[in-house]
Nucleic acid binder design. Sequence first.
DNA 1: CACTAAACGAGACGGTACGTCGAGTCTTGGA
DNA 2: TCCAAGACTCGACGTACCGTCTCGTTTAGTG
Lengths: 204, 204, 204, 204
Amino acid sequence: MASGEAEKVSQNRKPGRPRSEQAHQAILCATAELMETMPVRTITIGGIAKAAGVGKPTIYRWWDSKCALVMDAFLERMGSQKQSGRPNNTIEALTDQLNQTIAQLRGRDGKIVAEIIGEGQSDAHVLDEFRQRFFNLLQNPARTLIQQGKDDGQIDQSLDTDLALDLIFGPIYYRLLVGHQPLDDSFSRALPDRVLIALQAPVP
Amino acid sequence: MASGEAEKVSQNRKPGRPRSEQAHQAILCATAELMETMPVRTITIGGIAKAAGVGKPTIYRWWDSKCALVMDAFLERMGSQKQSGRPNNTIEALTDQLNQTIAQLRGRDGKIVAEIIGEGQSDAHVLDEFRQRFFNLLQNPARTLIQQGKDDGQIDQSLDTDLALDLIFGPIYYRLLVGHQPLDDSFSRALPDRVLIALQAPVP
Amino acid sequence: MASGEAEKVSQNRKPGRPRSEQAHQAILCATAELMETMPVRTITIGGIAKAAGVGKPTIYRWWDSKCALVMDAFLERMGSQKQSGRPNNTIEALTDQLNQTIAQLRGRDGKIVAEIIGEGQSDAHVLDEFRQRFFNLLQNPARTLIQQGKDDGQIDQSLDTDLALDLIFGPIYYRLLVGHQPLDDSFSRALPDRVLIALQAPVP
Amino acid sequence: MASGEAEKVSQNRKPGRPRSEQAHQAILCATAELMETMPVRTITIGGIAKAAGVGKPTIYRWWDSKCALVMDAFLERMGSQKQSGRPNNTIEALTDQLNQTIAQLRGRDGKIVAEIIGEGQSDAHVLDEFRQRFFNLLQNPARTLIQQGKDDGQIDQSLDTDLALDLIFGPIYYRLLVGHQPLDDSFSRALPDRVLIALQAPVP
DNA sequence: CACTAAACGAGACGGTACGTCGAGTCTTGGA
DNA sequence: TCCAAGACTCGACGTACCGTCTCGTTTAGTG
């Protein structure tokens, strides 16, 4: 009280036993492993609890729903995103970005992304989280590049940035989610050039 | 077979009571109504049966799964697709097609399409059915137009038709499924012109 | 239709699949077996379901609670009560009745009765059922004998019958439930004579 | 020992913070209050802890189980037993004892006794404790009186004392536990006379 | 007076059982 | 043979307590 200093500090910590970070990690880890081997839909909370050596209530203490947990587990594994970072040329950088995205969404990771978006169709919260925590993360570098391209004249300045992003990523997610065509190398080769035409040229 | 007597009336009809077309329709109708008011995921077979005044086994007699039924109910309501049919100009026809698709996927119908694709992420069969019975139906006219455009020189002949379709429809489904941006009028206005640039110009 | 007989009759039967008596019996049987080997309190609905090869909802369809089920299973096994029936002498018949009751409540059966009464202390419904379906059944013959004894002068006519029954059975249940003394042979030998004194003699 | 006490206090005390008698009492008190308002079975350790403003481990530090705690709380409230003590006449003293017991087991206290005995049916330890700490306490005065009655000729000397106690208390507990008849005044009036007949008269 | 060690409040932990719900199958009587 | 009805087995759901543990704090007695 004297000089108004923090004094006792008295601790802002909550009372009681703190949550076990070990249990938290075990759950995330078990979930990630289950996601490798089975569709998200068929994963059960009980199954995760058993795999993690954890009680069901512990899972519910940390996450509201299976989907929230799956989101976290997914992001943990996705966290290690490398940035090739070659800023010299906007167009080249965008091409890189695109190819990297396609590469990322091939295989199991892409399947999981698709499943999460699928779950999101019946649970707005999941889709929200997905956008905020994965999608924006992925899209923002491209957004910056587009802005940059518009500034230095490589991209049509009258083009709406959001639309540009949809032109770039739309075809990829389309194939990923509808599955009518694969995200193969020929797609990866042909798409960037074609899309970039649309971005560069001014609408007549 | 032994005594080979065709005897009593050859009868190519199956014996027993014939399936009730009335029940069939009641089920489809009840399903369609439920789809209007609740997410596909939360619809239950039992709920449909109750709403249709039908037994669950009757539903299983006609459809393998909830999703197959939902698909049928959905297609029934989607059946009445008008074709504006103005074949004079390929580019204009494609623009029409695009705008029509966007208009169609706005509102409840789009939500249902999204939910079906969502279900499809955990059930390959659903996605198969979706592609065969709805998606191709929708996409084939555009495919024809593109082919036509390539023939008469309005579209770059080196462009792969499948890729062209992804460029056209990708952004729409992307917005529909990820929900980061709406399928609004400004999108509807801006998208076709921009996409068609990509289709028309040759890659340098 | 012809002679205008009751014709349609229309049936008072409910529609739908009838309850499976087989499942009913399997549940009762499994419960009875579990009661043999473990305390009622530690028996679980899930355990019964598993042992009976039955789903939990089926159990809940037939019984409101574990205790109601246990009551039924218990009564089924208790059903085969022999009546030694020697009506020549009221006092002798009462003695028989008493000894028979003691014999019955020795061993596992008595333990189960005690456990059911124990459960009943926290669930009035259980105690109700117990009284109506087991206790009265057991006590009514004695009640008749007492009435008879009062009529033919062998039992004090001023004695309230309910009180008489409590004098007879009270000590037995007391030992059964409090467990301070066993229901052994010496008890079985000494009790009837002593109790019958109280019933026969008039209060001074 | 008094004056010349063993120098350095001799130190038989354990180190560390001593148990809090305040917590002990708070737990007992909270338990007693809960017992007033809800069945013993539905009381939970967590509920007691919350009501007493105490942590669960503190409860387990003092008591092994909910039942042990309930026993203690119950005995605390029962502690104030008055002894009317009129030793002039054995028979009258026994009658007094009986009426007092009936009066005591009427109302909430009786219900709690019944619930404890009920719990005891599935937990031998509870029943043990009950007998040692409540039941014997209650029964011993009567035992003494009976012995005394046998000595001075008012009670049949050939009567086993344990049996006598069962004859006296059996009907009371029987009504208490089975609940087929109330522990009302008419019972209280009629029982003692009738029971005492059995004790006094010799078996023919 | 500071140190030590146990008890304290709180509440998270791994479990177990709960009672409910939906899926997909089976079994009735009637059409 | 199909129909409506609904009971069936199965298994996941999310909740409630259990009895134990792990925190940070408090409190007596010792050094």
